[in-house]
Computed example of a mutant assay.
Amino acid sequence: MFNLIKRDYIIQKWQILIYALMVIFFVLLGRHDAYFIFLLASILVPVNMIAYDEKPETNILLNSLPYTRTEIITSRFLGTIVSIIFSTIVTSILLYIFNKPFSITDITIGSSLALLLLSFYLPLTYILKPGYSAPFALVSFLILAGIAPPIVTYLGGKLTSVTDFILNLSVPIFYTSALLLGIVIYAISWGVTTFIYQRKAF
């Protein structure tokens, strides 16, 4: 499975450089919160990896290799986690180099949102028609980036008891809860995607 993950990065070696330049652009632009930059950096590589693999001929090739379908999906989900970790490290370094403020909270929010979005996106890529997943991801991300902050602000003002409860949580409990919730949703997505892929015909 390590070779499958390695393959994804070899295929995208030049695109990864472009993604790094994109992240630098948003860092220098200074018009977005740090968590947004962490979120953007975390989803670029996984979405492009999936765009490569959604082609029927690619899946036929993958299934001709000495790997089970379960192992193929496992490599995809593990590769996504590796990508999020790597992207978070690189983004943190870039923010530090360009003297842009960020915190552990920004990292937690950005990474958790990336994990959540990809948890829903990964199973959909094996349901949607080939060629539709990348545009779907782009449109969904733009819509989310536009409407999520106002919705969160609105709900925060209306659901004051929930907001007060979250704000009163200690930092370790908050981070641990967010991490556990992300892991549970990601694990469910992993299982659902494996189920779909094992029954998909190529």
Rank of each mutant, 00 (worst) to 15 (best):
A41I: 08
A41N: 04
I43Y: 03
L44D: 03
P46L: 06
P46Y: 05
N48E: 12
N48G: 07
Y52T: 13
D53Q: 05
P56S: 03
I60A: 15
N63R: 08
P66L: 10
P66V: 06
Y67N: 10
T70S: 13
E71K: 12
E71W: 04
I72N: 11
I73C: 10
T74H: 11
T74L: 14
T74C: 14
T74W: 03
L78C: 13
I81F: 12
V82W: 07
I84T: 01
I84K: 00
F86N: 06
V90R: 06
T91P: 01
S92I: 07
S92D: 01
L94S: 03
L94T: 06
L94D: 06
L95D: 06
Y96I: 09
F98Y: 13
N99S: 12
N99H: 15
K100M: 06
K100G: 08
K100E: 14
P101A: 11
F102I: 07
F102Q: 08
I104R: 04
D106E: 11
D106F: 01
D106S: 12
I107K: 00
T108N: 15
L113C: 09
L115R: 05
L116A: 13
L117G: 10
L118V: 03
F120V: 07
L122M: 15
L122T: 06
P123E: 01
P123A: 02
I127E: 06
S133M: 07
S133R: 01
A134P: 03
F136T: 03
V139L: 14
V139P: 07
S140T: 07
S140E: 12
L142T: 05
L142I: 11
L142E: 01
L142V: 09
I143M: 14
A145R: 07
A145V: 12
A145I: 13
G146F: 14
I147F: 13
A148N: 08
P149C: 06
P150L: 06
V152E: 08
V152H: 04
T153E: 15
L155Q: 12
L155S: 09
L155A: 09
G156P: 12
L159E: 08
T163L: 02
L167Q: 09
L169T: 13
L169W: 09
S170C: 10
V171G: 09
I173V: 14
F174L: 15
S177D: 05
L180F: 11
L180M: 04
